[in-house]
């Protein structure tokens, strides 16, 4: 709208929006600040100015071996997403470019598997994992997270692929491209942004998955979710250190998340809102 907004109104709205935004962001900000406080400062009452020590970060790593769960989180989230992509890419391709009458039903059915409450299958999965010796293993959990996110991956890729106009593929065929050439020269380059978005969102979702990661791991394969959850009664590790661990756990994904606002809306609403 080319309407002129008075500067006064604009400043008013700006202040209101910033107050709300800072209130919402405050818990994260406060954890960040606390992570640079000493333990005495952390419990000494409200203060936004830390003494600026890095000791908490060092202690968390030295005492609690932060690096292992961090690497587990990276391996599980990236591994499960790549695995899901490998399985989902051909399926999404087929549904987008060679749809049949049943394509829609299959998509809806896939989505419906996402609606099954995890807790309902907790015991069977636990027993299967125990019997197969998969409990507390990275491979077991990677497969698990892959299965959980597979419907979203298929669905997201499908909505991206469907936006590639059919006429372009027909043009490629008229131009003499075979199916592999069509994929290599036309589909893959045009699909890359969609695939990257899918990858990004699913790494985020897998990183933050906090049911199965807690249920199926103890120490070896425990990612950050399980690692942090083990501090629910803080023995030996106090708030400044907990804040340091928390900051490290959420920082990478928070930054990734900022870049994925658009994909987030699309991926989590299954294309219903763009």
């Amino acid at each position: 709208m080319a309407r002129k907004v008075t500067t006064g109104a604009r400043i008013g709205w700006t202040i209101a929006a910033w107050v709300v935004a800072l209130l919402i962001f405050f818990p994260i900000l406060y954890a960040l600040i606390t992570s640079f406080k000493t333990e005495q400062e952390a419990i000494a009452g409200f203060s936004l100015i830390p003494s600026g020590t890095f000791e908490n970060y060092i202690t968390v790593e030295e005492q609690r071996d932060y690096f292992t769960p961090f690497m587990n989180s990276v391996i599980l989230s990236v591994g499960s997403t790549i695995l899901a992509l490998i399985v989902a890419l051909p399926a999404a391709w087929a549904m987008a470019f060679a749809p049949t009458k049943r394509t829609k039903d299959i998509l809806m059915w896939m989505l419906s598997t996402k609606m099954m409450p995890s807790v309902a299958v907790l015991l069977p999965i636990f027993i299967i994992f125990r019997n197969l010796g998969l409990l507390d293993t990275r491979i077991g959990l990677t497969v698990m997270l892959m299965l959980i996110n597979l419907p979203i991956v298929v669905w997201m890729l499908y909505t991206y692929f469907r936006e590639i106009p059919g006429e372009i593929l027909e043009a490629a065929r008229m131009d003499g491209a075979g199916i592999w050439q069509e994929i290599v020269y036309v589909l893959a380059p045009m699909g890359v942004p969609g695939i990257a978005s899918t990858l990004l969102l699913n790494v985020i979702l897998a990183w933050n998955e906090a049911f199965w990661t807690i249920q199926l791991t103890t120490t070896n394969a425990a990612p950050l979710t399980a690692f942090i959850a083990s501090f629910s009664s803080p023995q030996g590790l106090f708030w400044a250190k907990l804040s340091a661990a928390s900051t490290m756990a959420i920082a990478p994904i928070l930054i990734l998340g900022w870049f994925s606002q658009k994909q987030l809306v699309r991926g989590l609403t299954f294309g219903a809102v763009k």
């Binding site: 372009i168 027909e170 490629a172 008229m174 045009m190």
Partner: peptide, 11 residues
């Protein structure tokens, strides 16, 4: 063939 949408390869 020349398509209605031109169907040029955008990349």
């Amino acid at each position: 063939m020349v398509f209605q949408s031109y169907a040029l390869y955008p990349h």
